[in-house]
Amino acid sequence: MDVFFEQYFDISLMRENFGIVLEGFWETVQLALISAAIALVWGLVLALIRQLPGKGTAPARWLAIAYIDAFRGIPLLLVVLIISGSFPFLDFLPEWLRAPTWFGKPDIFWYGVLAIALTYGAYYAEVYRAGIEAVPHGQREAARSLGMSHAAEMRHVIVPQAVRKVIPPMLNDFIALMKDTSLVQVIGVVEVVKVGREIQADTFNSSALTLGAILFLVVTIPLARIVDRQINRQQLRLQRAAP
């Protein structure tokens, strides 16, 4: 048991390395926030394509469904590896896209962001869909009977209500996304887990990993509480609205 505590809870080692671990965690946070922002937009686009009316749009709908199924079915780790492995060889892309170094971040950072956003875009699309389908049918009928086009109906009536409904599941997925950012260390991004493992290799002590875990909890536990509060509030609202 002593070995366990020494290995994972060496306070002085944690204190010594707090600065670099925190720096790694900041990289994790940036990865998570940028990927989530892109995934939120991409997921909404996918969900809206899926809702397109009419026969002529069927191919677009199938493509969206195929995409969602594919990216929900492939492990994120593989997507990370495939993107980082293949992107540098996509000759038809201009240099700034093939090996982006925006905001002073290395290309591997952006490959990681892309992989996470593509994968979570598929998850978010499903969450949006659930939200859109949860808007009562009468809302669509009211919009349609007022002469609103499908686009206006989506933009002004359905999506604003759907988004409100899906905030809790979105936050849940964000927690999952944030944890999954640790996968991009395999392509060399120095985020919190990578930092922890490097310290582990240098000192033969794993306490920096524990510190990383604690930093995660500092963010994820409050998020989980917020999700709960939101769900409770929504439930109250539903009870009040019921006739």
Binding site: P136, G138, E141, A142, S145, H156, Q161, R164
Partner: peptide, 12 residues
């Protein structure tokens, strides 16, 4: 114009 049994006002 149409008016529905359940009102269907836009709640937001």
């Amino acid at each position: 114009g149409m008016v529905f049994q359940q009102f269907n006002l836009f709640p937001h």
